[in-house]
């Protein structure tokens, strides 16, 4: 589904963040990308999202070279990805309801479907009472759950979770990881970037370890070893 082919990312003047990265993520896979802070995990995810371009090498999404794709094509790919980020990336001027419905509106879903689906998912995620609140009125855990609801609402093909539990307490961390596992069981691809040893060891899924911009380990049912 996603293929990195000899990808190198250099930030000017000569800071090498990723070096000759090659690996493939298959459809329906749960893959964790681990490494210390600054190892290159976030850059790797930003390249998948088309927020950064590889200096050398190519990244393919369902056979399409992301670096060569036009703006419209890139937005279509992004719509197939549900993102959960450490800084939540919520829309601060939109309510809880609007943050989720916006994603459905982008997809061109009709109002009836939005009115039915958004309250349902917010209820499931425990934000049914806060439908008209703004993100600034939510706690960190609630904001992260809102980000999760937003990532799932369109049933995307891939969920990318970049340090999704960084700001969460153990209970909310467990909730988010459980949700990711459920999503994966439903056949969706999950890419999790984290430096939380406990989560990785508990998951027992494929682990790609990055150190100084290089893949040093890629194991099925891997463990967090740095």
């Amino acid at each position: 589904m996603i293929k990195f082919k000899n990808v190198t990312k250099i930030y000017p003047p000569n800071s090498v963040v990723l070096e000759d990265i090659s690996f493939e993520i298959k459809e329906g896979e749960f893959i964790s990308i681990v490494g210390k802070s600054g190892a290159g995990k976030t850059t790797l995810i930003r390249i998948i999202l088309g927020l950064e371009k590889a200096t050398y090498g190519e990244v393919f999404f369902d056979g399409q070279n992301i670096s060569a794709i036009d703006s419209d094509g890139l937005q279509k790919i992004r719509r197939r990805i549900g993102g959960i980020y450490q800084d939540y990336k919520l829309l601060p001027l939109k309510t809880v309801y609007e943050n989720v419905s916006y994603i459905m509106a982008i997809e061109g879903k009709d109002n009836e479907e939005i009115k039915k689906e958004v309250p349902r998912i917010l209820e499931v995620i425990g934000l049914g009472e806060k439908i008209n609140n703004f993100p600034r009125e939510l706690s960190g855990g609630e904001q992260q759950r809102l980000a999760v609801a937003r990532a799932f609402v369109n049933h995307p093909d891939i969920i990318i979770a970049d340090e999704p539990t960084g700001n969460l307490d153990p209970y909310n961390t467990y909730e988010v990881i459980s949700l990711l596992e459920k999503i994966n069981k439903a056949g969706k691809t999950v890419i999790l970037s984290t430096h939380d040893r406990e989560i990785i060891n508990k998951l027992g899924k494929r682990v790609v370890t990055i150190e100084n911009g290089k893949i040093i380990r890629d194991e099925e049912k891997g463990r967090f070893i740095i």
Partner: peptide
């Protein structure tokens, strides 16, 4: 953020 979640330029 709107761009990251896939909103078109027009939207």
């Amino acid at each position: 953020t709107m761009r990251i979640v896939g909103a078109s330029s027009w939207f």
